[in-house]
C-alpha cells in the first residue's frame, strides 16, 4: 500500500487525519466551553428585547459592530473584558470581527437615551454628522398627522421629508430596547 498509488489509502489518511485534528482543535474544546454557565444575575431576555435582538441579527448589525471587549487598554472605553459567561445564553453569540462602528457590549450604559437611539436609527447623520452607519427608515412611519399615535421621533429638519412627523414602529422600539439592554453584568469578585 502506498499513498502514491492507492487512492483509498490517500483519501483515508487525509480524511482521518483531518477529522482527528478537527476533533482536538474544535469539536472537543467547543463541547468544553459550551458548559461554562452564564454570569450570575444574567437573565434570559424579555420578549421585546428578544425581538429586538432578532432584528439586530436580521439587519446584519454584527457585520460592523462587535460585542466583544478585549481586556486591553485600547478597549477600556467599551467596558470590562468579555468573559465566556457573557455569551452562555446567546444564540448565536455576537462577538464579531469588525469594528467599522464601535463595540456595543455595554452600549446600554453608555448611550441609554431612547430618543437619541431612535433618531440615530432613523438616520445616524442627524446626530453624528460623519457617521457612515446606514439609516433604517423602514422601521419608522411618516405621518402627516400633527399629533399621531405612537412614539414621535424628533428628527431634525433636513433629515426627513418636509412637513411629516416621524413615528417609531414597534420594531424600532424593540431594537432600541435591545440596545438599551446591552449592559455588561458585574462579575462576582
Amino acid at each position: 500500500m502506498s499513498l502514491h498509488t492507492d487512492h483509498r489509502a490517500l483519501l483515508g489518511v487525509a480524511f482521518g487525519g483531518f477529522l482527528i485534528l478537527s476533533t482536538i482543535i474544535a469539536v472537543l474544546p467547543a463541547f468544553e466551553v459550551e458548559k461554562i454557565p452564564p454570569n450570575q444575575g444574567l437573565a434570559a431576555a424579555n420578549a421585546a428585547v428578544a425581538r429586538g435582538r432578532a432584528l439586530y441579527v436580521k439587519e446584519g448589525c454584527g457585520v460592523c459592530h462587535t460585542q466583544f471587549v478585549r481586556n486591553l487598554p485600547v478597549d477600556a472605553p467599551y467596558g470590562r473584558g468579555s468573559v465566556a459567561g457573557d455569551y452562555a445564553l446567546e444564540d448565536p453569540p455576537l462577538l464579531g470581527t469588525q469594528r467599522t462602528g464601535p463595540d456595543l457590549a455595554n452600549v446600554g450604559r453608555r448611550q441609554p437615551s431612547e430618543t437619541w437611539n431612535l433618531i440615530h436609527l432613523y438616520n445616524p447623520r442627524a446626530v453624528v454628522p460623519t457617521s457612515v452607519m446606514p439609516g433604517y427608515p423602514w422601521y419608522f412611519e411618516e405621518s402627516i398627522d400633527a399629533d399621531p399615535d405612537g412614539t414621535i421621533v424628533p428628527v431634525p429638519d433636513g433629515f426627513k421629508p418636509a412637513g411629516v412627523t416621524i413615528v417609531a414602529t414597534e420594531a424600532a422600539m424593540d431594537l432600541v430596547r435591545y440596545l438599551q439592554s446591552l449592559q455588561q453584568a458585574e462579575l462576582a469578585p
Binding site: F15, F18, L19, S22, A26, V27, P29, A30, F31, V33, E34, I36, P38, A84, Y87, A88, L89, E90, D91, P92, P93, L95
Partner: peptide
C-alpha cells in the same frame, strides 16, 4: 465536506462553543 458538516452540526455550539467552531 467534513468542515461544512462540523460547522453546521449544532450539538457543541451553545454559547462560546459557537465561537470556537
Amino acid at each position: 465536506a467534513t468542515l461544512f458538516t462540523i460547522a453546521y452540526l449544532p450539538f457543541y455550539q451553545d454559547g462560546l462553543g459557537n465561537i470556537v467552531i
